[in-house]
């Protein structure tokens, strides 16, 4: 620090705690609601302290779901979300790492054309081609399937660029040495490139897992069968505008459960998370 000013340090602490309070409060309140009786929430007598039902709403949510508007049990929705998040994260990493490997370590016809073909998709989020993409998925008979939920989201320019960038830093001597030892391209990929990419893959996995888990528009389009609901989209189906019909106690427990896996990943893998976040934006 340039100069020592106790007062300014104190203010800094105060402002940071205020920021944390803003960030935590909505989640705290949701947690509080998830431990109360439905009547206490609806009457507005809930207050700011946890209620007397530490687990009941969670058990009901996980195994039954909401009752007034019948929903899929949350455990099943979480299963769908987990499949979706894992397939998207692993699939994206797998197809990007091999395509980046091809672009960097080989010369073949139309190499740059293919590279640019992938690169341009950075500019085409699902949101700008909603219905045509939906129609293709439907024509291929992939509505209400895990394949339909995941494969269209698996192409990733970001991950390909990231791996390409990283592969360009692998020294030529390493490739030379491998070739002298008689290693072919696949052996080099397996024994050298993959181990070297471990940190990059892990950082990317953290970001892509969150991305996959949090998808909303895509599940909304390609799943009409409630048993295929993901948790993030499923919550939305539990809430009705005429609020007397919304089982808020279950909705709040479900909301907590929907946040749990991605937030846990951030806390458990802080360093990788920050690395992944910074690198995917380059």
């Amino acid at each position: 620090m340039v100069e020592n000013r106790p007062l300014s340090t104190l203010i800094a602490h105060a402002i940071l705690w205020m920021g944390i309070a803003i960030v935590v409060f909505p989640v705290y309140l949701t947690f509080v609601a998830s431990t109360h009786e439905p009547a206490e929430i609806v009457n507005g007598t809930m207050g700011f302290l946890p209620g007397g039902l530490p687990l009941q709403n969670y058990v009901d949510a996980l195994f039954t779901g909401t009752k007034q508007i019948k929903s899929t049990p949350v455990l099943q929705m979480m299963g769908n979300s987990l499949v979706m998040a894992l397939v998207i994260a692993i699939g994206k990493i797998a197809i990007s790492i091999i395509s980046a490997y091809a672009v960097v370590f080989f010369r073949f016809p139309f190499r740059m054309f293919f590279f640019w073909t992938i690169f341009v998709t950075l500019m085409l989020p699902v949101e700008v081609r909603i219905y045509p993409t939906y129609k293709i998925v439907s024509d291929l008979g992939m509505l209400n399937t895990y394949a339909g939920l995941t494969i269209p989201l698996i192409a990733s320019a970001t991950a390909t660029l990231l791996f390409r960038q990283f592969f360009l830093t692998i020294p030529d001597e390493l490739v030379e040495a491998a070739k002298i030892d008689g290693a072919g391209p696949m052996k080099f990929f397996r024994d050298v490139v993959l181990p070297l990419s471990r940190t990059n893959m892990a950082a990317l996995f953290v970001i892509l897992f969150i991305y996959g888990w949090n998808q909303y528009l895509w599940p909304l389009l390609v799943t009409t069968d409630a048993s295929m609901d993901t948790i993030v989209y499923g919550i939305r189906r539990m809430i009705v505008t005429s609020d007397a019909q919304t089982d808020w106690h279950i909705v709040m427990a479900t909301t907590m459960l929907a946040m749990l896996p991605p937030v846990f990943v951030v806390f458990a893998m802080q360093k990788l998370f920050v690395k992944g976040l910074v690198e995917t934006e380059k």
């Binding site: 944390i20 909505p26 949090n214 993030v232 919550i235 937030v263 998370f273």
Partner: peptide
């Protein structure tokens, strides 16, 4: 301060909807 990044936009919406829901 960094964990809300992991909360889905729709879920963030539900958190705030619940706090500001007119009747409850």
């Amino acid at each position: 301060l960094m964990w809300p990044y992991a909360v889905a936009p729709a879920v963030a919406g539900v958190l705030w909807l619940f706090m500001f829901q007119p009747s409850l």
